[in-house]
């Protein structure tokens, strides 16, 4: 069953832009990315959209559909009413390049700020065998496809551009947690998380978990455990008192 769907797509660049109305054919089984491609092919050949796998695994086609951060390729048209006008806009948190394409280099900068895995210096290759229970915990975080929808929806940077310098965002705090939970990692990730990556800015309102297309429990399994580790280290009144009494650094 086909119908003529109503769409409003943001068009423009960093000098300005706005929502433009289109009517595009919608066929059974299609996703929003199919419609954007049809729009490109029939009415707006210069419409810019970033995409690659069309299977929810490359994380390229992140955008906002009816104001909700989603992957264009994983949003079925069947979830909308035929009479509904569907609004497609670029991710709001990142600078616009053109139309639906944003500059996500903020995330690459933040990724570089996370020190890499640091195994013990005296450990020879092949000497350690990791057990399945230890692997499983960080495997959840490895499902991340780096679509940056969590970074986009996090109000700490979405609503406050000035926080971008101090706050790495849920994706990279999750990376810190992944390394911190690795049995062999020797780096001090706890102070890093709080002091260098701005964990304290997170007020655990869980939007990152809500929009994750891989359904990673970012807040419950990465951010809160990191906050608890920081509490162990920095906000434990008993430890603080002991440090003061015995003049430990």
């Amino acid at each position: 069953m086909s119908y003529q769907g109503k769409f409003r797509v943001w068009r423009g660049d960093d000098s300005g832009g706005g929502l433009e109305d289109f009517t595009v054919e919608v066929n059974e089984g299609e996703v929003v990315l199919d419609i954007i491609h049809r729009l490109q092919a029939t009415q707006a050949p210069d419409l810019a959209v970033r995409w690659n796998c069309k299977a929810g695994k490359c994380g390229s086609c992140s955008a906002e559909i009816n104001g909700r951060p989603r992957l264009l390729c994983m949003t079925r048209m069947s979830v909308f009413d035929e009479s509904e006008t569907i609004t497609v806009t670029p991710m709001r948190t990142f600078p616009i390049i053109r139309d639906l394409v944003t500059d996500v280099s903020f995330n690459y900068t933040k990724a570089r700020e996370v020190p890499s895995f640091a195994p013990p210096k005296d450990l020879a290759p092949g000497e350690y065998r990791m057990q399945q229970v230890d692997v499983e915990r960080s495997q959840e975080f490895r499902k991340c496809i780096e679509c940056f929808l969590c970074q986009n929806t996090c109000h700490v940077v979405r609503d406050h551009e000035e926080n971008k310098e101090a706050f790495s965002g849920p994706r990279f705090l999750m990376r810190v947690a992944e390394l911190e939970m690795h049995p062999l990692d020797t780096a001090d990730r706890v102070d890093q998380a709080q002091d260098d990556h701005g964990l304290g800015y997170c007020n655990i309102t869980k939007c990152c978990s809500e929009v994750c297309p891989e359904h990673i429990h970012i807040t419950d399994n990465a951010l809160i455990p990191m906050k608890e580790r920081v509490a162990d280290r920095k906000y434990d009144p008993i430890v603080w008192l002991g440090n003061k009494l015995f003049k430990r650094s």
Partner: peptide, 19 residues
Amino acid sequence: ASPPACAVAEPHSKYTGET
């Protein structure tokens, strides 16, 4: 309202979270 819902702008001009 910090934030009221995901992808809904909060009304506050400054945010320092739990820092």
